[in-house]
Amino acid sequence: MSALAQPRKWEQVFWPLLAAALLLLLWNYSVVWTKTKVFPSPLAVERGIAELLGKGLMWAYIGDSLRRVALGFCAAAILGIPLGLTLGWYPRVNQVVNPVLQILRPISPIAWIPVAILMFGVGELTPVFLIFLAALFPIVLSCVSGVSNVPAIYRRAGRNFGLTAPGLLARVVFPAALPQILVGLRIALGIAWLVMVAAEMIAVDSGLGYLVIDARNSGKRYDLVVAAMLTIGLIGLALDLGFRRLRDIRSVRWGFRDES
């Protein structure tokens, strides 16, 4: 986008806020006009959030959900980054392993629920495992393609200055692939947050996903359902915005030139 077409600063905040306000109004009047008794109005949701905050449940559930996502995501990164780098570095190993990855990848983590319960029982580990699975594939695949997209000229320059394989991997291939790895991590974090909801609907009795299913099951409290949904959305947005900031780090910014 050219500098001329860039909207002014206040406009960047004002128009999205206006859109959100209009949406809230539309929601409110839809509830009023249809005279629904089941679906809550924005105000009812706001009261629901206040109720959850008052009982101290909201922060506890947010904390539980964030903890599970953090554990699953970090485990996926710790295992997935070295695995992806290795597969990218040794194309022959990748040729052997890639078909298996491609079969496992399209299986929704939800489909793993019975197996997860079989392996980890009813408890904390099951949702963490499902989140881990969901995050693992985007991380591995972005590392593989990040490494194989490193321009040959960089490797050649690295070898010319006397680097052997370990040095080349650490000082050339990894930093060259890092922007793409960060993209994969960001996608993985988004998916981990999505899967958290489903994962917490089984096997545990806390967290935002549990809140959604529990509020519906115990007394059809749709105000609390929507309150949980909104909270999930807002935290997901905050996580994504936070992660995007990583690309302002100067040693990776070169990899994000053309993106907005």
Binding site: P151, Y154, A176, L178, S251, W254
Partner: peptide, 8 residues
Amino acid sequence: ERGLFPWL
């Protein structure tokens, strides 16, 4: 000039 490392 293409052999420079952009992350350094």
